[in-house]
Write a protein that binds this DNA or RNA. Structure first.
Lengths: 200, 200
DNA sequence: TTTGTTTTATATCAATTGATACAAAATGTT
DNA sequence: AACATTTTGTATCAATTGATATAAAACAAA
């Protein structure tokens, strides 16, 4: 698959560098993240960055793709693997709160909503990537609901697509509040009512 | 109230300038909006801007205050004045979709979520302003529900606060989707189900 | 008119921005 | 060994950034 290349071998892992870059963007925004901030966090030199990623915009686009397609967002993963649907919805929200409030990397909220959404206003091509990420997520969520309908757990008239969008939008509210510094305990308090709204 | 001042009179309206600045921030983000972008849109010179607002950060903070406290956000206004509660909720979402998708100023989405939320990650004092704006909105929404309970329109056990947060979070989902370029017709399609979820 | 005060306009500052030129270093190929 | 290719590190570029110095302009008070 990966052709052995000639020339001096790269001394860093591309995905690790991408992840580091994503967290800088996540915390500081696209314009707020300088190339020096980025190279420092990625632990590579300027020319190395440009050599691999092209320029700042392309690095950003790859970071979005990394987040949306490669990283395997944990809330979604949990939602798809937890056997019981009610628990799955619970855990989904729990994981959302977990990752949007942990300030280990200093980046609160959600990469898509706190960073990519802002950049969508001025950076060519970003809006389309964001739109695709949203619609894909809607569909992944709906797919699980459909599965539960087929298994007879959810009623036949369960509106999977509407509830999937609802679930995603509620997530949006959570990460927004997290970004604003509202404490996790307040966010956790609404999980149960959210679950009832989505499944009920 | 406003003492007559000596010296050369100001040649521009502060609120108009603030509104213009807000729309630039809205579209381009805090870091993406240069002082030159701002002065051009506000139609004032650099030194005038600094003379009145101090610096870029203070201008931004005033823009947030302008949006949250002075501007009288139209969706909220409509929600509070429409007599019928069901229609009020409908119109609230309709207005949200209206202002977040109209690209007259080129700024889609919501100022708070597409711009302020990003800046909250790095600009001192912004997170607190954002938090206050969210909690205040929660309360304004809940107040209307409480009013309807007192009037006997909503049942006594109606969970006003929870539904207020739910309503605000659904709004968050809408403006996020709007920012991503999802067409208004798709957003409008979910209004009815949103209304039923909030009041039902 | 004179004085004091505030705003305006021009011009420009030092610092930071995204991005490169260049040569040395490290590999595969011949 | 000699060559081609790719990456790395240093040093630096022109352009843009947020912010000012300066003096003329426009007002009120004396």
């Amino acid at each position: 698959m990966k052709a052995k290349k000639t020339g001096r071998p790269r001394e860093f892992d591309k995905n690790e560098a991408l992840s580091a870059a994503m967290h800088v963007f996540w915390k500081q925004g696209y314009d707020g993240a300088s190339m020096r901030d980025l190279t420092a966090a990625m632990n590579i030199s300027g020319p190395s960055l440009y050599g691999v990623f092209g320029d700042k915009r392309q690095l950003f686009m790859e970071a979005i793709d990394f987040y949306a397609n490669r990283k395997a967002c944990k809330p979604l993963e949990v939602f798809e693997t937890e056997p019981n649907i009610e628990t799955a919805v619970q855990k989904f929200f729990f994981e959302v709160i977990e990752y949007s409030t942990e300030s280990v990397s200093g980046a609160k909220g959600c990469f898509l909503s706190s960073c990519v959404a802002t950049a969508a206003g001025e950076l060519e091509g970003v809006e389309e990537l964001l739109k695709r990420a949203i619609l894909d997520t809607d569909e992944r969520l709906a797919r699980r609901f459909e599965l539960e309908k087929a298994r007879g757990v959810l009623p036949d008239n369960f509106p999977s697509k509407i509830r999937a969008r609802l679930m995603f939008d509620l997530r949006q509210g959570l990460v927004f509040r997290a970004r604003a510094g509202i404490e996790p305990k307040f966010l956790l308090a609404d999980i149960e009512s959210n679950v009832r709204i989505i499944l009920g």
